[in-house]
Design a binder for these strands. Structure first.
Lengths: 234, 234
DNA sequence: CGGTACTTTGAGCATTTTCAACCATTGTGG
DNA sequence: CCACAATGGTTGAAAATGCTCAAAGTACCG
């Protein structure tokens, strides 16, 4: 019996290859998408926008992820999906997908993707709700790492992450400026380096502890050293 | 052709009625649930717990919602589901549900529930990420109101919400203490009253604007002016 | 009546935001 | 090859929002 990934791949084999430049929109908020996409190369993110320009990025898609699942049932998109960096994907007409859903095996595969996507956004909500900034950033880095790793898209502890610090902030509920400070700190502590859209994880165990909220952190300003007189007795 | 709600209801008609007391667990995190539930009366919430006792409530279920959807595919529960207040529900064996999923119409109805649940958690993540405390509370109150209203479970702008302030905080990424302050403020401003597990919405338009982040707010301490003297104009 | 669970409130503090300036890199047209 | 614009990164100081801790207050229950 074929695995889910295989089934999805075979379904999209009937689709058409498409490319999106960085910043281009795959799916528009509130509209009924005409296609469903299977990402082959690159990243895309799903975002909501509030009336006053605040933005939240509620999901990040990487190779192997399917974008526009709600189209299966002719449901309007809950947010825009935008390419982060160059994206190569396979696109399928929503109508032909709906036909393919007649096949029970295919239908179950897509259901499985939905369950997974739901879990991702639940975990995101939990992290934003209860982790502090360094923990959130760590959780994101680890999460992406694990997802790419599981699909055998990376071998070592380094990968490509085409997101600006502002976009990372919108994903984690932080400002771009603060994301920057956290990244500097991770770098100073030699936990992880994020530079020019490349992530290098240097201390995986520590990053994982951070991501799980198991590590007590103090993102001290560097200059704390000489504060004054007696060092605080921890 | 029957609507989704009807189909779901008819599926659960084969199920067994069950009751859960406040605080009892319907589904345990990480385990494979033996049942799927359709809530008939009461509220339940799904929560994640971090190693150090921090907790996040990532979804709230009310009458008509289905709990344990991931069981359809024998996927482990992503979080515990707990009854908030007395819950009456219909329970179905996971195995028999999987059989019923052979029926295309039924399968699509459950897919639709999954899409809805995913959207809920995406919106939750977006709110926690980008709205401030009063806006988040407003969004939650409006969201629950709309959901209950749509199912014709309430007529006026008042409903039952059996959650402690701590639980609301865990849902919105706030502390119980701060939720309290926000609720006091909403009450002072005569926007909404939340008291003893009952919500009364007094100024729906303003609450809605708040929930959408369209309203500039200043949650000033009351005593900026003179303490007593002038009676608050109810 | 004591016990338990939840709410309310204050004071001080921590984290994160805001605002603003400046720097670095890249691509473009002259 | 250089100037320039554009985008994104880096940093500081001040301010704000929300948190922690702690102490009462309330309500209900047996």
């Amino acid at each position: 019996m074929r695995g889910r990934t295989e089934i999805i791949a075979s379904v999209f084999r009937r689709g058409v290859t498409g490319y999106f430049q960085s910043g281009e929109t795959l799916i528009e908020e509130g509209k009924l998408s005409r296609h469903v996409y299977l990402l082959r190369i690159g990243l895309a993110y799903q975002s909501f926008r509030f009336p006053d320009r605040r933005r939240a990025i509620v999901d990040i898609f990487s190779s192997g992820n399917v974008v526009g699942l709600e189209t299966i049932l002719s449901v309007r998109a809950s947010g825009s999906v935008t390419a982060a960096g160059l994206v190569k994907c396979l696109g399928l007409e929503a109508s032909s997908l709906r036909q393919l859903m007649e096949d029970r095996e295919i239908a179950l595969s897509f259901t499985s993707l939905l369950i997974e996507a739901r879990r991702r956004s639940e975990e995101l909500a939990a992290r934003i709700a209860r982790l502090d900034a360094p923990e959130r950033v760590a959780a994101m880095l680890i999460d992406l790492y694990d997802r790419l790793r599981r699909r055998r898209l990376i071998a070592r502890s380094s990968y490509n992450l085409h997101l600006t610090q502002q976009q990372i902030g919108d994903h984690l509920g932080l400002t771009g400026a603060h994301v920057n400070r956290v990244l500097r700190w991770l770098s100073r502590e030699d936990i992880a380096l994020v530079k020019g859209y490349v992530v290098i994880i240097r201390d995986m165990p520590r990053l994982r502890r951070l991501a799980r909220g198991e590590d007590v952190i103090e993102m001290q300003r560097t200059k704390v050293t000489s504060d004054r007189s007696l060092a605080p007795i921890a």
